[in-house]
Amino acid sequence: MRTTINLPDGLAEEAKQKARESGRTFTSLVIEGLRQVLSESDMPVRFERLPVHGSSSDRPLVDVSDRDALAAALDADGLR
């Protein structure tokens, strides 16, 4: 199937350069990228529970999204 897509100039040039460097065509690079994106969207997303060690009475629990608190906890345990 023949189709037209509009790409930002920088992205198109970068993709063409990548295709040249790898000895491929621009079209094959686009096809591979689309296949990769489409296959990822078919994969179910699985979330696993994080392991819990110790208890809040042994040591404070840490919010891992708080960089400073996480660093302090790692330093306290000698893990860093």
Rank of each mutant, 00 (worst) to 15 (best):
L38Y: 06
R49S: 10
S65C: 09
L61Y: 09
L50F: 04
S65D: 15
V37E: 12
D68W: 04
E40V: 00
S56R: 11
S55C: 12
Q17G: 02
A71F: 03
V64S: 07
R80G: 03
N6M: 05
V62K: 05
A69I: 06
G10K: 06
D66K: 12
I5E: 10
T25E: 10
R2I: 15
A12N: 05
V30K: 06
E14G: 04
A15N: 03
S41Y: 06
R67K: 13
R80I: 13
T25D: 07
A15L: 15
S28W: 12
S55T: 15
K16D: 08
P60R: 13
R46Y: 04
K18P: 00
S22T: 12
E48Y: 11
V30N: 04
L11H: 02
S28P: 01
M43Y: 02
K18C: 03
V30I: 15
G10F: 02
S28E: 15
S22K: 12
A72Y: 01
L29R: 10
L50A: 14
E21C: 00
D68P: 00
I31S: 08
P8V: 06
K18M: 10
S22H: 09
I31G: 00
A12C: 07
V45D: 02
L34G: 04
H53A: 11
G78H: 10
R35E: 15
V64D: 05
E32Q: 13
S65E: 15
F47N: 07
A76P: 01
I31R: 15
D42L: 11
E13W: 01
D75W: 07
A73Q: 12
R2Y: 08
S57T: 12
E32S: 13
R49I: 03
R49Y: 04
G54D: 04
S41L: 09
I31H: 10
A69C: 02
K16M: 08
F47Y: 10
E40C: 01
V52M: 12
T3Q: 14
N6C: 01
S28M: 08
P44A: 02
S57C: 03
T25R: 09
I31K: 14
